[in-house]
């Protein structure tokens, strides 16, 4: 695809990229801490991944290979749109293969295949503040982060255990980054939380509407909050993928007919395809 004319490389002007890169540097220097940035007007509305897009735009180079996934899939409308956007404005190569990408922009999932030190994972974040439901005042939440006063979040977990016998947070499960900052990892399933810990790839988080950027540098400690007698468990549907047979990947539940028939398939489309290419097959294949 030829790049569109009249636009700067990757759509954003160079000054904006500088501003975002400065925010990114600060974010990497203080793992898990939210950095405000001057979020720009993008050709998508808020709620469609503008934060992630701005980060990707600021870090893309001509030699990069971009993968975009939405809930693990490369072929949903949003993933396709964003991929096409960068192909048009930056002319970069794009791919659906996790192992071929240098930059992966994701909405609400971490790829199943382990990432390497040559890759950057960019997350789309709707709500960067993990304490927002406990403390309505943003001034107060900033103070709580500054003073590392996170008792209220543990109260939230305590309440879950009291009411449900276990912590009932299934996505956007709060984590402690580098033993210092409480962070919202974006609405990835709790199942994906262990992947955040000591990941070789750089992880960048962008919230366009809320105008915040944060980061987890490679090989950083990331621990999901829990209690000693109620340790964190990564939950997963107790099924195997109907297409490739994997019993370790995160699954989507798909309704296949009007009689209530269901199929469980890998949420990560590339992972599933790779396994099938390698000869694995599930019951429904």
């Amino acid at each position: 695809m030829t790049t569109i004319s009249g636009y700067n490389f990757a759509y954003l002007d160079e000054q904006t990229k500088r501003m975002i890169r400065r925010a990114l540097l600060k974010a990497v220097a203080i793992p898990g801490h939210q950095i405000p940035f001057g979020s720009r007007e993008m050709p998508l509305p808020y709620g469609w991944g503008t934060g992630g897009i701005q980060i990707t735009a600021a870090i893309l180079g001509a030699a990069d290979v971009l993968k975009v996934i939405d809930q693990g899939a490369d072929d949903t409308t949003n993933a396709v749109s964003i991929r096409r956007f960068f192909a048009k404005t930056a002319g970069v190569a794009t791919t659906t293969r996790t192992d071929a990408a240098t930059v992966i922009q994701t909405r609400h999932r971490i790829p199943e295949a382990p990432l390497t030190a040559n890759q950057i994972l960019v997350y789309q974040v709707p709500q960067p503040e993990p304490l927002v439901k406990l403390e309505p005042s943003r001034a107060e939440t900033r103070r709580m982060h500054a003073l590392a006063e996170y008792g209220a979040m543990h109260v939230r977990l305590y309440e879950d255990i009291t009411r449900f016998g276990q912590v009932a947070i299934s996505y956007d499960y709060p984590v402690m980054v580098n033993d210092r900052y409480l962070m919202a990892p974006s609405p990835i399933p709790a199942f994906d939380n262990p992947k955040l810990h000591q990941m070789p790839a750089l992880q960048l988080f962008g919230a366009g509407r809320e105008k915040r950027i944060y980061a987890i540098p490679p090989y950083t400690n990331v621990r999901s909050l829990d209690f000693e007698d109620h340790p964190f468990r990564a939950g997963r549907a107790p099924h195997a993928c109907g297409l490739c047979g994997s019993d370790t990947s995160y699954l989507d539940e798909v309704v296949v007919d009007n009689e209530g028939g269901r199929l469980f398939v890998c949420s990560d489309t590339d992972y599933c395809e790779t396994r099938r290419d390698a000869g694995h097959a599930g019951d429904a294949a």
Binding site: Y150, G151, H154, V155, Y158, E159, T162, E228
Partner: peptide
């Protein structure tokens, strides 16, 4: 927040992490 959660908050703020003890 439940009565127990209210009473236990200060303990959790001080780093206590055992639900049963709290």
């Amino acid at each position: 927040v439940s009565a127990g959660g209210n009473v236990g908050e200060r303990l959790m703020a001080q780093g206590l992490r055992h639900y049963g003890n709290i």
